[in-house]
Simulated assay, not measured.
Amino acid sequence: MEVTNKIVIITGAGSGIGKATAIHFAKYGATVVVSDINLESAQKVVDEIATNKGKAFAIKANVAKFEDVENLINTTVEKFGSLDVIVNNAGIGPNLLKTHESLLKDWDRVIAVNQTGVFYCMKVALQQFLKQGYGNIVNIASLAGLKASPSNISYSASKFAVVGMTKSAAMEYATKNIRVNAVCPGYTESALLDQLLNAKPEMDAVLKSVIPMKRYGKTSEIAEAVVWLASDSTKFITGQTITLDGGTSL
């Protein structure tokens, strides 16, 4: 996949899908800005990439704060001269309550990170992409943004929003050499899945029963799709949601 020498920002890259994606981009020759709200976690990913002779740099950012997003993108452009790709991965999960039981603070927190944070990153990145005449956005949505996800109202709302924002922006900038796509992972081995299974261990058998492949996805499998969408191999793809769910949506 052709991403050699591309400058790539990945939010929420200190763990899970974000970490795997950072490692994959570096493996294929990109320079990766590993961003996370936890700078220590981000730096550990940078160190791992450096150990494998990759190029990476850590920047702390809370995507729910617009000034942090501006600093993330402006610092990247100042340091490397441009920005080729931004992967909007940072996200958090809810407390798994039915809609009438949902806590207002949980709604506000999830929407702030998963929805508003993606909007902030898209807004600032697009301003840079328009200046330089090209760019690529890959948003990490979810199967919960495509189909019903009970006891998950804030997370589902945020991920449906990410799919909608992806499609809207793709149409707006299709003639500007800017592509916008999303990936929609199903149940993937990650901190969010661990959170669910720790709260309800009985869900392990339930979830696997609805996955035709009878297993969870691996973060490396999601990362491969993200790198592919960001590569020069997919120049005619925009506004798409690539579903990686082991057949669950079937």
Rank of each mutant, 00 (worst) to 15 (best):
A20G: 05
T116Q: 14
Y120A: 03
L197H: 12
G14W: 04
P201Y: 01
T248W: 13
R215S: 12
I153S: 15
D106G: 00
S15G: 03
T51M: 13
A20L: 00
N152Y: 06
I7S: 01
G12P: 05
F80H: 11
L39W: 04
V69C: 10
A225C: 10
W228T: 14
A230T: 01
T219S: 15
L72I: 03
I211H: 06
T76M: 04
D204V: 09
H24Q: 10
V34G: 01
A170N: 03
E67Y: 00
V226W: 11
I153D: 09
L96S: 07
A223E: 07
Q195I: 08
V163T: 11
T4R: 12
V33H: 08
R179T: 00
G239C: 09
K167D: 01
N5A: 07
D36R: 04
I9L: 02
T238G: 13
P185Y: 09
F119N: 05
Q127W: 01
I73A: 07
K167L: 02
T116L: 15
Y216F: 13
L229Q: 12
G117R: 08
I23D: 02
S231T: 06
K176E: 15
M171H: 11
T21W: 01
G93T: 15
E202W: 10
A13L: 01
S149P: 07
L72D: 00
T219N: 15
A61M: 02
S35F: 03
K131W: 07
A182G: 12
N136F: 03
A223Y: 07
V118Y: 08
V206N: 11
K55Y: 11
S249H: 06
A61Q: 02
V33W: 03
D204N: 14
L97E: 14
S154W: 05
A58F: 09
K44Q: 15
T243S: 11
A191T: 11
I59L: 15
S231M: 14
V45P: 10
T243K: 04
S35D: 06
K60I: 07
D232H: 13
S156M: 11
L143P: 00
K98I: 10
L207E: 03
G246Y: 10
A144T: 10
S249M: 13
D232R: 12
R109Y: 13
D36G: 03
P201D: 08
N198D: 14
A20T: 06
A30F: 00
D194S: 13
V113E: 05
V34F: 00
K53A: 12
M1H: 07
V163C: 06
V63S: 05
S15Y: 02
K6G: 05
P212R: 12
Y134R: 13
G145R: 05
K167I: 11
K53E: 09
I23P: 01
E40G: 06
S220N: 13
N89W: 11
A199R: 14
L192T: 12
R109W: 12
K176W: 07
T99H: 09
G135A: 03
A205P: 04
L244I: 15
L103S: 10
I242G: 12
L244W: 09
A230F: 05
R109T: 08
I17R: 02
E172W: 06
F66D: 03
N89E: 07
E224P: 03
T248L: 14
G217N: 10
S249G: 09
N177L: 06
L39Q: 11
A141N: 04
G14R: 09
N38G: 07
